[in-house]
Write a protein that binds this DNA or RNA. Structure first.
Lengths: 245, 245
DNA sequence: TTGTGTCTTTGCGCCAGCGCAATGAACGGA
DNA sequence: TCCGTTCATTGCGCTGGCGCAAAGACACAA
């Protein structure tokens, strides 16, 4: 942890989390912020530790994952710059329910529990903004939950890729699509399936020219086709022929 | 909607949502509250409608569910007295992402969007309390998501029943366990499986004496045994014999 | 260059769970 | 009391997806 230089404070005030706050409030927030650097493959925090700090991510990418008693890992979310980590959990002083790992080198602002609560009590607007950001995550999780329980694997993988592209692109349709760096295993843990199945699906898509698959990377060519697959409602109907190729 | 009688206002102030507020704040909140009655099998709101109101449930049970484009329904949560409905979504003025149906006759307090935002800006404590309640739901959803992607159907059904009992009991271990009123279909939609599979599982459990199954109701006898099933990690190991009966 | 570790692909066997279909059981209205 | 409706059960066949195993492909270090 190092004291935050002035130049960074400028950036901080632009974050969505601090939208609509007064100059004075921003100043207080800045005073209590510390800047942390978390290198690739190390952790912001581990599942089960006491939740003492919350973060606002400035640079890098973070993987939020949960491990079940059996040792299987599940990827709950991937974060990018501007996202907040552990806002909710830091209020109730429960342990972190999951782990946050830097998948690239990261820079983030951090506040500890006490200041967080204190700040929110001072600036209701901050609490509301926080809630708003949580709301977005909540909705996404709800949708993924629904998908997981109603859709087939292929659809879920397609959706995951679409989401990743949108996240990188900020929802503007721009070609060529950015290159995604993740392992088949990652993708499996994001969609509730196995490494093998993801591999098979990617191979098949590659043959159809939808994407190029490499080691730890996927390069999407035809996002529209993926959308078609994701939205294709075909619950393996018992009487239909297995669709003509 | 009817104006709220004084006797009800007493009750309102005891809700967890309003913990730690001042008399004056409570008074304002009361002034803006209206009392609504929602009969069994009717809806608080439907998925897709504009989110105009948020609710604090006083009596009854509410089913939160989402329907996917294909028409399949997924039960996200069951609410009981003291729970809040639609806190998050009412802040961002998005449409309701899911539907809320009264499964028994319900009584609830309601506030509209503008007052909700206004109140939270006035009382930060209210925003924090709201966030805290959302946090609990969030954690539960995360866990269910993990379970859905890593556990077998039997375990998930067991967990669902355990959760329902705890919810009714307020986490105190008391026998005989309360009687659960829900259809096999409901249970299937809560655990991401089918009516048939749930029925088979219940039959098997009934034979083992874990519970009594009736039309739209389940009476649990041995909750501990269910816990054993839920926590039994046995990922269908390829080399182990299929466990001796 | 060779080795070592990590990531990927793919054939193959297998089974948990799906979904139909047919039957049975309980409820409620007239 | 009878009938229509909704809910539950269970046999049966089938398949989507799992997971092993074995073999490539690539990256990095020595």
């Amino acid at each position: 942890m190092t004291p935050t230089p002035d130049s960074d404070l400028q950036l901080l005030t632009q974050a969505a989390l601090f939208d609509g706050l007064t100059e004075a409030q921003l100043h207080t927030i800045q005073q209590h912020a510390t800047l942390v650097r978390v290198p690739r493959r190390t952790f912001f925090f581990h599942q089960g530790e006491a939740a003492t700090t919350f973060y606002l991510l400035r640079e890098g990418q973070v993987r939020l994952s949960q491990i079940n008693p059996e040792g299987k890992q599940v990827i709950i979310h991937l974060f990018g710059p501007g996202d907040v980590l552990a806002v909710i959990v830091v209020l109730s002083n429960a342990p972190y329910p999951l782990s946050a790992e830097a998948i690239t080198d990261c820079v983030a602002w951090a506040w500890n529990r006490e200041t967080a609560v204190h700040l929110m009590e001072q600036c209701p607007r901050l609490a509301i903004n926080g809630m708003d950001m949580v709301a977005g995550r909540f909705l996404e999780l709800q949708n993924r939950y629904r998908e997981l329980s109603t859709e087939r694997v292929e659809q879920r993988v397609a959706r995951a890729l679409i989401r990743l592209i949108h996240q990188r692109n900020g929802y503007q349709e721009q070609k060529p699509y950015p290159l995604l760096s993740l392992t088949r295993q990652d993708l499996a843990e994001m969609t509730g399936t196995t490494l093998y199945t993801v591999s098979r699906i990617c191979s098949s898509w590659e043959q159809q020219g939808l994407l190029e698959a490499g080691r730890e990377q996927l390069h999407i060519h035809k996002l529209e086709e993926l959308t078609t697959i994701a939205d294709d409602l075909r619950p393996s109907p018992p009487n239909f022929p297995p669709r003509p190729n």
